[in-house]
Amino acid sequence: MTPPAQPQGVTVEVRDLRKSFRAVEVLKGISFQVSRGERFVIMGPSGSGKSVLLKTIIGLLRPDAGEILIESQSIQNRAVRNQYRMAMVFQSGALLNSMTVGENVGLYLAEHGLKAPAEIDVIVARVLESVGLKGLENRAPSELSGGMQKRVAIARALVVEPQLVLFDEPTSELDPLMAVTVGEEILRLNERTGATSILVTHDRELAFATAHRIAMINEGRILFIGTAQEVQRSTDPIVQRFIRAELATPKTQ
């Protein structure tokens, strides 16, 4: 499977990324490259540093060492970072609870004054419909189920028209049907817009169904990068153990 060559996505390169909290080294030198429009899945046990990795890429955490490059330019430089549209769908959804669903989805456009209010309403309605939440604009996020909140979070990311989207465990805590719906949504977003997608998940089905390539991460290091078939055929004992363990244990964060 080769990634579709689409104009909108960006290349991402992570070079020897390190990040510690106090004395604990969480990322111990992570390197990988993601091409334009690729769906790159990161799998690994809880606490292996996946969320920290995503937060470092999006710029919420500052790396101790190493570099992140977008289109071959380091995004340590704010000006470079601001040239590209990026979005992150948080593990928790992270919707603003004091605002309605519609306000959450339209927030980026409204706050940056990118569109007139009436236009924003139209866009919000359209995007919500595209994630199967038509007409829920005026609900409070707390009134929605976990799966619906995740889809609102995806809608909020869609509105940014991102060139790079990061998903942190988009299907955890969802029932299998909802997980499939959200998985399809992620696939459609990627295919329609060509946005480069980096996806952290425990969900093997989601990983094998969506990934162009899969990276296995353990204790802050990458063990293996390859296609779904290559991962399944890998003879690396830790990778094999992880995949079997994944089958045996329930999904957690």
Binding site: Q91, A94, L95, L96
Partner: peptide, 17 residues
């Protein structure tokens, strides 16, 4: 505090707000 703990503030930052 709850916005911080539940990553709402991180979400704002990713939207450049």
């Amino acid at each position: 505090g709850s916005m911080q703990v539940y990553e709402e503030i991180d979400a704002l930052r990713t939207m450049n707000i």
